[in-house]
């Protein structure tokens, strides 16, 4: 579904991604793990078209999406739930969801899907006319994910959904991610929290200073000495 080949990205003068290759099949959850500053966010922004690149290629459903605007990439079926949630703080909860559905035409199915969101997350329904900036961190994450899904994506990009959330909320967010995947949405998940991420992904890539250093299934990774030490904090 998504195929990235030898992607090289510079930001300013810095070489941030130095030859990344990755592929995702339909229906999978694929994780990208890595420490701060590894280039994970840059990688997602590049897929979404917000960061430009000179070398390498990105194919989505066998279509080269280089030079497409971020808006056209959303229209192809890639939704992006950005790092730090980034809800529109001065828009209401409902307006945030409407922005997620910006590319959709039909109001009938939108109303239905909106109601589904409110059924699934009653708190969002209760607060629908409240400014999104007044929600708690966990609620904002639910809103950001629901908002991304309203564009009816085939592929969902999630950038550190666990960031800054309490462990119990993280668990809930991850079960929601699993649930979304079960409904047929393919997911590319960026995480630093390897412990929870490895439980739900089919395979993972570990990114360090712009390069993929390890890749494999969760059981491969859990068995890897370095992963155990650095990412899972297991003493050997």
């Amino acid at each position: 579904m998504l195929k990235v080949e030898n992607l090289v990205v510079e930001r300013g003068d810095a070489l941030v991604l130095n030859g990344i290759s990755l592929s995702i099949k339909e229906g999978e959850i694929v994780g990208v793990l890595g420490p701060n500053g590894a280039g994970k966010t840059t990688f997602l922004l590049t897929i979404s078209g917000l960061v430009k690149y000179k070398k390498g290629s990105i194919f989505f459903e066998d279509k080269n999406i280089k030079d497409l605007s971020p808006a056209s990439i959303v229209k192809l079926g890639i939704a992006h739930c950005p790092e730090g949630r980034n809800v529109f703080a001065d828009l209401t909860v409902k307006e945030n969801l409407e922005m997620g559905a910006y590319i959709r035409k039909s109001d009938v199915t939108l109303k239905r899907d909106m109601d589904n969101v409110f059924d699934r997350f009653p708190i969002l329904g209760k607060r629908q006319n409240q400014l999104a900036g007044t929600l708690s961190g966990g609620e904002q994450q639910m809103l950001a994910i629901s908002r991304a899904l309203l564009s009816e994506p085939k592929l969902l990009l999630l950038d550190e959904p666990s960031l800054g959330l309490a462990p119990i909320i993280i668990e809930e967010v991850f079960s929601i991610i699993k649930e979304i995947n079960n409904r047929g949405v393919t997911i590319l998940l960026i995480e630093q929290n390897a412990r929870v991420a490895l439980d739900i992904v089919n395979k993972s890539y570990v990114l360090e200073t712009g390069k993929i250093v390890i890749q494999g299934t969760s059981s491969d990774l859990k068995a890897d000495k370095k992963i155990q030490k650095v990412y899972l904090g297991i003493k050997i």
Partner: peptide
């Protein structure tokens, strides 16, 4: 609403499929 979204956060607006 799109104008308000772009005013608040242009990049996130792009990610909603809004041509900022």
């Amino acid at each position: 609403k799109a104008i308000r979204a772009v005013s608040q956060d242009r990049n996130t607006a792009w990610l909603m499929g809004i041509d900022a």
